[in-house]
Simulated scan of single mutants.
Amino acid sequence: MAADSILGGQKLVAFAPTIDPERARAFYEGVLGLRLVADEKPFALVFDANGTMLRVTTVPELKPDSFTVLGWDVDDIEGTVDRLVSAGVVFNRYKGVNDGDPRGIWNSPSGARVAWFKDPDGNVLSVTEFRSA
């Protein structure tokens, strides 16, 4: 077996930290619409993210990173951003990157279009519409 195929055929499990599982559940389930699979108190909330397991893990303290920790590939970024804004999500604006777009969408050189937002713990999340340049 080649080294590059050791995990290539296995399912990915994603993780996001939280210091407030109740608030995280309200966001991931109630706002983003992920299906809660299990509440494994006091360790994690387990969600089904369209076939990918997302474990929102309870941690004693959290210093969120400034980069994206989770992202979704969407077909219609404008529609997705509008629906999330209607649900109360605030999109991040980065000076010189996406601050000129009314929705906060960045048009990358590759053709992908990206918008960023945070979960209640400050973890940076994104939605991306992939297009070819």
Results as ranks from 00 to 15, higher is better:
A2G: 11
A2N: 09
A3V: 10
A3Y: 15
D4C: 10
D4F: 12
D4A: 07
S5Y: 06
S5R: 07
S5N: 10
I6F: 15
I6C: 11
G8V: 02
G8M: 01
Q10T: 09
Q10E: 06
K11G: 02
V13L: 03
V13K: 03
A14P: 03
T18K: 10
I19K: 13
I19W: 11
I19A: 12
P21Y: 13
R25T: 06
F27R: 01
F27L: 04
E29R: 13
G30W: 02
V31W: 05
G33S: 05
L34V: 02
R35M: 00
L36I: 12
V37D: 11
D39I: 02
D39E: 15
E40F: 10
E40L: 11
E40N: 05
K41C: 04
P42I: 03
F43N: 12
L45V: 07
A49Y: 06
A49K: 04
G51E: 11
T52F: 15
M53E: 15
L54P: 09
L54Q: 06
R55I: 08
T58C: 09
V59G: 08
L62M: 07
K63W: 03
K63I: 02
K63L: 08
K63Q: 07
S66K: 10
F67T: 07
V69K: 03
L70V: 06
G71H: 14
W72A: 02
D73R: 13
V74A: 03
D76Y: 03
I77T: 02
I77V: 05
V81C: 11
V81F: 06
D82I: 06
R83F: 12
L84M: 14
V85Y: 12
S86E: 15
A87S: 13
A87I: 10
G88F: 13
V89A: 08
V90I: 10
V90F: 08
F91S: 04
F91K: 04
N92D: 14
N92R: 13
R93N: 10
R93M: 07
Y94G: 01
Y94H: 12
K95P: 10
K95T: 11
G96D: 11
G96N: 08
N98D: 13
G100I: 03
G100C: 04
D101G: 05
R103K: 05
G104C: 13
G104F: 12
G104T: 09
I105Y: 12
N107A: 05
N107V: 01
A112K: 00
V114Q: 00
A115P: 02
W116R: 05
W116G: 00
K118C: 10
D119E: 08
D119A: 09
P120N: 05
G122E: 05
V124C: 09
V124A: 12
V124M: 14
L125T: 06
V127K: 00
E129R: 01
E129T: 00
F130V: 00
R131M: 00
S132Q: 09
S132R: 06
A133N: 00
